[in-house]
Nucleic acid binder design. Sequence first.
DNA 1: ACGCTGACTATTA
DNA 2: CTAATAGCCAGCG
Length: 130
Amino acid sequence: MAKKKSSNEERLQKLTPSGKKDESFFEQVFDVVRQVPKGRVTTYGAVAAALGTKLSARMVGWAMNAAHKMSPKVPAQRVVNRAGLLTGKMHFAYPEQMQELLEKEGVKVVHDKVVEFDKLFWDPAVEMGS
DNA sequence: ACGCTGACTATTA
DNA sequence: CTAATAGCCAGCG
């Protein structure tokens, strides 16, 4: 058996079948999040699953930390947790900024939760599969 | 270099 | 029903 240390490298290799350059885990997350249509939302798990790291939804959120310093900025407000809760709102410039941005895009948020989140949920894997 | 933390999720008690 | 635990992986002290 190969060493466990190469497991993460293998995973990344599978994500780049085109022999593309080694995009950092972050760039993959940013790319997916930026594909989220306006007025829609997605979850950490969905993005992680689209990258093949569904077991590490935390890494998606962690990537978001660096996302807002990227350019163009990543619509992290469209990324919520599995329950549709704006768990990451506290990491924005202002905690209410996340809800504010979502409402401006047509997403209603009540008590830090996305209204009809189930309908607004956008699966990145669907777009990547088309 | 080792250990803790963390914008998650699912499972078990 | 709620609470706690485990699994994930990379950055930071």
